[in-house]
């Protein structure tokens, strides 16, 4: 996932969470919207962390090579 995609998904997640939270007293569907927003934010961050973790060994190998 690119930086732009990460920012977009993060923005949509925050928007849904805020909008759902604000309207929650009026509509049950708003709770779901809020929950969807929180899930989007979490999935986005987890996806970014797993991407970073996957690329870590390459960085480590590169650093080792540089030391040698």
């Amino acid at each position: 996932m690119s930086v732009r995609q990460f920012i977009f998904v993060y923005f949509v997640g925050c928007l849904f969470a805020a909008l759902g939270g604000l309207l929650a007293f009026q509509q049950m569907a708003s709770w779901t919207l809020c929950a969807v927003g929180i899930v989007l934010i979490s999935a986005n961050i987890l996806s970014q962390l797993s991407n970073r973790k996957a690329s870590m060994p390459d960085v480590a190998v590169a650093q080792n090579s540089a030391w040698r």
Binding site: M1, Q5, F8, V9, V12, G13, L15, F16, L19, V36, L40, A43, N44, S47
Partner: peptide
């Protein structure tokens, strides 16, 4: 490849 972005887009556009 574009899963999370497409999901977020597909829920933002209706709003």
């Amino acid at each position: 490849q574009n899963g999370l972005f497409v999901i977020a887009f597909a829920m933002l556009m209706p709003l």
